[in-house]
Amino acid sequence: MFAFLLGRLGMLLPTLFGLTLLTFFLVRLLPGDPVSSMLGIMAADTTLRDALTAQMGLDRPLPLQYVRYLAALSQGDLGQSIATGEPVLAAFFQRFPATLELTLAAMGLALLAGIPLGTLAAARRDSLIDRGIMALALTGYSMPIYWWGLLAILFFSVGLGEIAPAWALPVSGRIAVEFDPDPLTGFMLVDSFLSEETGALRSALEHLLLPSLVLGTLPLAVIARMTRSSVLEIMREDYVRAARAKGLSPARVLVAHVLRNALTPIVTVAGLLVSVLLGGAVLTETIFAWPGIGRWMIEAVWQRDYPVLQGGLLLIALLVILVNFLVDVLHGVLNPRIRHGT
């Protein structure tokens, strides 16, 4: 197991190296000089220009710049935001819990609804239920998330024409303005619960509901499809026939024999979906004014805040790599064939 872990970690190093190269050169090599775009019309002032170039170390040769970038990275220094002057790392972690809360809720929703739906579709294969679920899943993953967000606002908050929505949900921010729980953990659900204000937790939940539904739809569709095909595959195995032959009820066979073995590919897909979720969070946070990483990055784009863009990309990619690594390890734990096969 230890050798397996070490091997997997070793494979990460070149990827990490590639990643730093990527974020470094993204800002430097592409046309458009960061200094002049940062200064805007003030770029005509050559003294200011030279000063900023020197301050950012952009007057040094590229390899040296890269080495300095790596050295700073190794000390956790991702630079400072041009717009606010905050250190990028601190700013990231200040906003990260909001995004994490949103993505966890979306992923939870996707798993909780997707696995049962996919299993049901497989168990009732080719029935009307199966067709219905698969048609919904196909719609779900063809749905543009930004449109789905607007529709959700229309259905659940604004109402359609004369028909008011049954339950008007809030569509902006993380909690109603009258509540201001101390940011102890950064997770609004936990903080509002700890604040013990009546209605705070409810308000936080209501604010979370629509964004996580919108963000969770694509993973839900993918997981439902994946579960269905995985369950169908396992149902053809001999040991399933054996289990049924020895008289176990179909439901028990499905849960104890089929589903348990069908979960491995689902774990993989769920891990890969983290990257999709973080990408979708950019749009969801923009639509629902959710103060997370996605909106922060989009604001950085508008303000041409390159250190934020560069640092944010790097941190998000690190997160994705970490999750994929954990999924890989989990895989090895679940499936000894993988552990010993490499």
Partner: peptide, 14 residues
């Protein structure tokens, strides 16, 4: 691999 680690939309935005 490094490119894949970046969420597609964020990379496109960047």
């Amino acid at each position: 691999d490094a490119l894949l680690a970046l969420p597609s939309l964020l990379l496109a935005v960047a």
